[in-house]
Amino acid sequence: MTDVKKIINRTIREYGKERQALMPMLQAIVQVKNHLDDGDMIAVAEALNLSAAEVFGTASFYTFLDTEPRGKYIIRVCKTISCHMAGKDEIIKVLEKHLRIKVGQTTRDNMFSLLTVNCLGWCHKGPVMLVNDDVYPELTPKSAIEIIESYISRK
């Protein structure tokens, strides 16, 4: 059984086969694969007795349910006003330079995707970024690079 099938079965055990299980199921797949491909969405549709269009319609609505491939670590830098005022542009610039990609792109080794997002809820401690689910507030250009390096040495 593929990983995705296992996730689907596990989610059904916990949340049932009603449509309310859809978000937890898509979230569980993204947690492991960092994105949803067509095959995943078709498998989910079959499991919950929905049309593939309904599943895609839901998935494509949500920023965190990516329908295009992303790296192992998704960096999301907050771009909303308080972080903007606290210098998020500088953070984005050093990350782009360090990873040699632009916002929206993924490194060639598929390790990192660099994205910007709306308010992450750390306005008193900006600039802030998420790396997958982990939060890094009060960034400086130096600390941002160090954090990325710590993920590189983790692989």
Partner: peptide, 23 residues
């Protein structure tokens, strides 16, 4: 239950839609 990065889901009826597996 978790959201997936949509501000609008803070609107109560959008939140229910989301919990129900919809946009």
């Amino acid at each position: 239950r978790s959201g997936s990065g949509a501000y609008i889901c803070g609107e109560e009826s959008a939140l229910f839609e989301s919990m129900e597996g919809k946009r």
